[in-house]
Write a protein that binds this DNA or RNA. Sequence first.
DNA 1: CTTCTGACA
DNA 2: TGTCAGTA
Length: 331
Amino acid sequence: MKIKEIAGKLNISPRAVRFYEEKGLLSPTKQENNQYRTFTEKDVWRLQTIISLREAGMPLADIKKALEEIDATNHEQLQYYLELQRTVMMSQWLEIKQVIETTDHMIALLKSKNTLPLEDIYQLAEASKLLREQRKNWKDKWNFDQQASTHDERVANNTGNYSDYEQALALIVKWVSPIPGEKGLDIGAGTGNLAGKLIELGASMSAVDQSKEMLRQCQRKYPDLETKLGNFLAIPYLGGQFDFVVSSFAFHHLTTEQQLLALEEMRRVLKPRGRICLADLMHAAHDPIQEDIEEYPVLPTLHQWFEDNGYMIKHHQMNRFLHIVYAVPIR
DNA sequence: CTTCTGACA
DNA sequence: TGTCAGTA
């Protein structure tokens, strides 16, 4: 078929089709005599996926890569691209949600006070701007992709930051004690050691990590584990799905503001009575000097958040920095 | 009338 | 990507 036909079929302009070809996403054959392009059924399918990915917001350059993976029947890579795209959309969704909430707040303010105090407007705008920037500034500072293959080895050494690692995981499992069939989420799952233990108890686990290499290891070790690319600030799930959220040795990578955002995110994906269990390096109390040396989360700050949001806390300190916090909704 | 390439918005 | 021009 010729360009007008295929363009009409897919509801795009012939110009767009030529443009995609120019960018190397498509390579229809041309007739010898007049240079007219000829499109096959495969080209239709290819164009369709280009359009779909594009509508999902993927840049043409990335679509090109994804298409190359498909050509090489490299499904694993393709899945990676799709999941990457998914996290992008999820972040966008969160931002939109944020704006909606801000607007709602303003509406509520307007209703109750009948005026919109200028300060409140400014404050709300600033807050939402801040949130947006924090999400945007997320990056993989720690090159976990490179570390993935050696991670377990390092953890097994049971020294430094990972001392008492196994004991900490065991305590999380004990406190969470999932009922078989319960849905759990492990954020910053790494190579899945914690999620794996919970699976063994019959929980249906999902693992989120920002490193696709880590997730690859997860999948290999625990085939039943569902893995998704994502991070604390943009958990790649719709809300209200999980009975519990756990995380070990990951939370301390966040700044204080991000930690509070992350807690909000956890609560978002939890069912109404969902519980949270964190094991991480923290400061037991506010201490400006210590906090300068080790930029770990500050326990009282987390406590405060949990209290403010109606959680009951169970807490255990394993060593100088390692703390386990278990939070259950009071009602 | 259709398509093509190239230029420009 | 849309649009316009000048062709084959």
